[in-house]
Simulated assay, not measured.
Amino acid sequence: MSLTIQLQTMLSMITMGVWLGASLDTYGKLLYQPRSFSWIVAIRDFLFWCIQALLVFYVLYQSNLGELRFYVFAALLCGYAVYRSLLQTVYNYVLDRLIAFVLSIIRFIKKSVYYIIVKPIKWILNLALSFCMIVLTIVWKICLVLSSVVWKPLWWLFRPIARWIGGTKQWQKVMPFLTKIKEVGRSVWKKKDKR
């Protein structure tokens, strides 16, 4: 292995050490880490480290065709130490600002969707419901008026016939029941009007 390839491998592994430190901080900030043991968190951590190992090996393969030497691990540790000592504070500050910016954009999109789409739909549905209640009220009142208009002439028409047949006594027995139904209907209707 030539000196150029060794130098290239060293620099790439130092870079990957910095990458490992940054990705660890990003992983810790973006994903919730519970204190108690959880299989989901364990599987997630295992997948994270598998992906990191594959990335490191891919970069190593591109540098020296995947030859593992002691200085490869030393360079990784050196890069991680450089990140921890020099770059961690700046990176965490930038990462916090970026996360806050993304969250503010998400909140803005949610509010925009609510005020542009959800709230108008609610208003239209309430308006349609109010309109339906008005129409039903008008139809109900028209039915009451029509029933009273039709009922009275029929009553005056059939009353002599009922007397002639002798059904007045039976009608007098039914009449209190019909009056009671009419009173109940009027009381229900008054309660609806009060609402």
Rank of each mutant, 00 (worst) to 15 (best):
I116G: 14
L127G: 14
R195V: 00
V139F: 12
R69F: 03
V149Y: 06
G79V: 03
E67H: 04
K111L: 08
T89E: 13
V150S: 10
L144Y: 14
V135M: 11
L55K: 02
M175F: 08
M10C: 13
L47M: 02
P176I: 01
A81I: 02
Y58D: 13
T179M: 06
W49P: 01
V149C: 08
T168W: 08
I14N: 05
M16I: 01
T89D: 07
S130R: 15
W123N: 13
S12R: 05
M10N: 11
I142K: 08
K194S: 09
Q8S: 09
T4C: 01
R186P: 00
W140E: 15
V18F: 11
S12V: 08
L144K: 13
L125D: 12
F70A: 02
A53F: 12
R159C: 05
L103I: 08
I116C: 15
A162L: 01
W171S: 04
M16V: 03
T4I: 11
L11D: 08
I14C: 11
F73A: 04
T168C: 00
V102I: 15
I5W: 11
L76S: 04
V94S: 09
R84T: 06
Q8A: 14
Y91K: 05
W155L: 10
G166C: 01
N92Q: 14
Y83H: 00
Y58L: 10
L87D: 06
K182D: 06
W189R: 09
Q52G: 01
I142Y: 09
I106N: 12
N126T: 08
K182V: 02
G21M: 04
L20P: 05
V113T: 15
I121P: 09
A22T: 03
I43L: 13
G185M: 07
L24K: 13
W49L: 09
I117L: 15
Y32T: 09
L144T: 15
K173Y: 04
L136P: 04
Q172I: 01
Y80F: 08
I124C: 14
F37I: 10
P120G: 11
W155P: 00
L103T: 12
C143D: 10
K173H: 01
F101E: 14
L146D: 07
K190R: 07
M16D: 03
A42I: 12
A53R: 00
N64L: 02
L30N: 05
L30I: 13
I99D: 06
L7E: 08
V59E: 05
G166F: 03
V113C: 14
F158P: 07
G185N: 10
L154V: 09
Q62G: 05
F73W: 04
K152H: 07
R163G: 07
S187R: 09
M175I: 01
S85H: 12
Y32A: 05
K110V: 14
R35F: 09
F73T: 02
R97Q: 13
Y61K: 02
L11S: 09
S2D: 14
V174Q: 00
V41T: 14
W123S: 11
S38Q: 07
I116E: 14
P160D: 00
T15C: 03
P34G: 03
L68K: 00
I99S: 06
Q62S: 11
L20A: 11
K119S: 14
K194E: 10
G66S: 06
W155R: 03
V90D: 00
V139Q: 15
L144Q: 15
